Amino acid sequence: MSVTAFELVSYWRIAAPLDRVWAEIVDVDAWPSWWRAVRKVERLRDGDIEGIGAVRRITWATALPYTITFDVESTRSEPMYQLEGRATGELNGVGVWTLTSDGDITTVRYDWRVDLGKAWMRAFAPILRPAFAWNHNVLMGWGEADLKTRLGLG
């Protein structure tokens, strides 16, 4: 694997029914209202009735002193189970949300296979690779905590 490529997996465990968690994950436009790392979501293109083909430009504030912006096109949706998007721009790759439930507990798995697109990130990847992975984990941890708060669980 290239030093600029990452395969990251995050797990959230949410004490809420799957339908409530799914509704928040698929409503990307609302992420800035509850996920502290998401600064802005711009709708660039609507998708079909299931959202396939929709494109959002998402700007993230990170735990490190930089922001990152990339476009995400929805490429696959299996309602109440899986959502996939292809990122292009300052990050390039594929992200897959997979949700499963056991009663009122929903497990969210996020697989992020991505390559760095920003020139400075690519240049410093050999040194900063662990920091970039740590940063991703912090952002995802915020997402889990913030979603729990949004759902009245925090």
Rank of each mutant, 00 (worst) to 15 (best):
W60M: 13
W60I: 10
W60K: 00
A61I: 03
A61T: 08
T62P: 06
A63E: 11
A63R: 07
P65E: 04
P65V: 05
P65L: 02
Y66G: 00
Y66K: 00
T67R: 14
I68H: 06
I68K: 01
D71Q: 14
D71S: 13
E73C: 01
E73S: 01
E73V: 05
E73T: 15
S74R: 12
T75W: 07
R76S: 06
R76M: 08
R76H: 12
R76D: 08
E78P: 04
P79D: 06
M80I: 03
Y81R: 13
Q82I: 11
Q82V: 11
Q82C: 10
L83R: 12
L83S: 09
L83H: 11
L83G: 00
E84F: 04
G85P: 08
G85S: 10
R86A: 15
R86F: 13
R86C: 12
R86G: 05
R86N: 14
T88N: 05
T88G: 01
T88Y: 09
T88P: 02
T88D: 10
G89H: 08
G89Y: 04
L91P: 03
N92Q: 14
N92M: 10
G93E: 11
G93L: 08
V94W: 01
G95D: 10
G95Q: 12
G95V: 06
V96T: 15
W97T: 06
T98E: 14
T98H: 03
T98V: 12
L99S: 00
L99F: 08
L99V: 11
S101V: 02
D102I: 02
D102R: 11
D104S: 09
D104Y: 01
I105D: 05
I105V: 14
T106R: 12
T106G: 03
T107D: 12
R109Q: 12
R109P: 08
Y110I: 09
Y110G: 00
W112Y: 15
R113L: 01
R113W: 00
R113V: 11
R113A: 10
R113F: 09
V114T: 11
D115V: 14
D115M: 07
L116Y: 08
L116P: 07
L116G: 07
